[in-house]
């Protein structure tokens, strides 16, 4: 299994957005809650499209939400 090199701040941004739930975020970006959980736990690296959608929900830039650690 490849190690996930992308870390994220989704948990922090959810907290800053009035404790947005994973389900709410999932519905806003059009994926299942399980996928949000996997991304948040760094078990899955989202596609660029999904990463942009998530960043846009938080009114943040992609780099603010996701970091690439090679």
């Amino acid at each position: 299994m490849n190690k996930c090199h992308i870390t994220n701040e989704i948990r922090k941004f959810r907290f800053l957005q009035s404790e947005m739930t994973q389900q709410e975020l999932a519905e806003k970006v059009g994926v299942t809650r399980q996928t949000i959980v996997a991304i948040e736990n760094e078990k899955y690296s989202p596609t660029l499209e999904l990463a942009f959608k998530i960043a846009r929900i938080f009114n943040a830039s992609l780099e603010d939400v996701f970091t690439y650690n090679a």
Binding site: G30, V31, T32, Q34, T35, A38, Y44, P46, T47, L50
Partner: peptide, 9 residues
Amino acid sequence: IPVISDEMD
């Protein structure tokens, strides 16, 4: 049961 199949699926 959600009917959507997202990118991870």
